[in-house]
Amino acid sequence: MIIQALAFYVFAFVAVAAGVMVIASRNPVHSVLFLILAFFNSAALFVLLGAEFLAMILVVVYVGAVAVLFLFVVMMLDINFAALRQGFLQYLPIGALIGIVLLAELVFVFASWTFSPDVAAVIAAPTPAAAQVSNTHALGRLIYTHYVYLFQAAGLILLVAMVGAIVLTLRHREGVRRQSIARQVARRREDSIEVVKVPSGSGI
């Protein structure tokens, strides 16, 4: 299909270009917006692959929630990016060195790429054929049945992260007036109003 190929190239190109712009643009807010564009195009690529569930989840989670928080932080913080980049050249050599070493390793590793003879047997895919089951269902089976242990463990990790954030930052400040809806609702007329008969001319 020409259209599919065309769509793939368009989305892939925009995704890569947006990725480049994320690091290239001077304004951090623009960076985040380009990041969102990149997410979008990745979602589109997922759709082309037939992984519609992943595509939607990518949009809901990354674009709809994570990037919003990013944007919040970037907009609220007054970061001087020029100052941040000052040391950039100074650290460039060592960064480049590490990058080159890692790259060389990768090249070396991929150059010697061979599948071990046992791999085919080991991989024995747990996923059923695409026609039998929708990809939402297949993912559900994997995550909630096959890998339920990992799912629960990940949940615990997030719980601990939440507890940690609260423990390290929450302070109950003194002198803050809080609304207690239960108390407001429970308040009766007798508690707050007193009807006084005032004889005229004598004051209260």
């Binding site: 519609e52 939607m56 674009v63 709809g64 929630a65 929708s134 939402t136």
Partner: peptide, 12 residues
């Protein structure tokens, strides 16, 4: 297939 998710994504 994932209509409701699509709606949810767009509204988010």
């Amino acid at each position: 297939n994932v209509g409701i998710l699509y709606l949810f994504a767009i509204s988010s």
